[in-house]
Design a binder for these strands. Structure first.
Lengths: 157, 157
DNA sequence: CTTATAATGGAAATGGTTTCCATTTATAGA
DNA sequence: TCTATAAATGGAAACCATTTCCATTATAAG
């Protein structure tokens, strides 16, 4: 399984099979949307995007698949405070495309930023290590979000 | 309005009045619970704690008050992935009792930690400033959470 | 190909949160 | 102190994202 294969169709098959999951059309369709769309999709967003081409993939399956993917660490489940979960594809190893979020508390707009990521990540790694030892946690992930008022909302007053 | 007043009964009266909100028994009861309980209460938790003493304060009022408090920045609304919002009192100025969260993705247990907070906060302040300028955001808050598997859940396998 | 069992979809249930509205209450002003 | 007015309330009903149920279908091992 050479690294080059990862670009081809279905590079995640191994990950699925290895964990005892089956490969289905619905799952492929959902992963496809997640990898090709720019972030922050809700379950329904994904359902809508898939539906024209795969009208027999139900919303329930979307939820179930997102749960599986989230459990495998292939997808992040996020909450931006708009009452529905948002999902984004977890990029490759070691922080490629790693980013955090800037959320407007008025209109729920979300900006992905990568500024300062290097410094952040270094501190986070240290912190993860320290916390993991102290609290006997096996830390697998972190979430950083900044909240505030975006330019547009600020000027509306 | 001397600073010393803040310890007394109802130090938040000014904040409320200043924003055009009225003081009611229910609101005082809710604030009282939030300030005196250790964090992460759900709306229903608060309702249950209040109910014996204030049986005529409804769950709806709890939700409404938490919304108001959250809007005033007196309370943080948090999501630990267990399907209900959790609220915690936002402590005084400049990071007194400032802490972040360590969340077990299996059992949803939450540990508050203050380790490394100083380094984190310094980096965060810089980041906030930089991001605020670049994206024209008026940043008011941030969220940091680490996710993983707690000792107990890890040993259950 | 056959078989065991995972996965599915659609409808129904769930459950946290919000909305509605008639009633109560806090507060400013007389 | 009393009154007027608009905010706040509670309880029931609505809402709506997500989950559960279950009979059916489809994957993949042998």
């Amino acid at each position: 399984m050479s690294r080059g294969d990862c670009g081809g169709q279905g590079w995640w098959h191994g990950k699925f099979r290895g964990c005892g999951y089956r490969l289905t059309l619905g799952r492929e369709a959902i992963l496809d949307v997640l990898t090709k769309s720019e972030g922050h999709l809700s379950a329904e967003d994904i359902y809508m995007k898939i539906h024209p081409k795969y009208p027999n993939v139900g919303l329930t399956t979307v939820y179930r698949t997102l749960d599986v993917l989230s459990g495998l660490g292939m997808v992040y489940k996020l909450d931006f405070g708009d009452g529905r979960a948002r999902y984004e594809f977890a990029e490759g190893p070691k922080g490629a495309h790693h980013h955090h979020h800037l959320v407007c508390t008025q209109c729920n707009k979300v900006i992905d930023y990568t500024d300062f990521i290097d410094e952040e990540v270094e501190l986070l790694n240290q912190t993860e290590k320290g916390l993991g030892q102290k609290y006997k946690f096996k830390i697998t992930n972190h979430l950083i979000q900044f909240y505030g008022e975006c330019e547009e909302c600020g000027s509306k007053k």
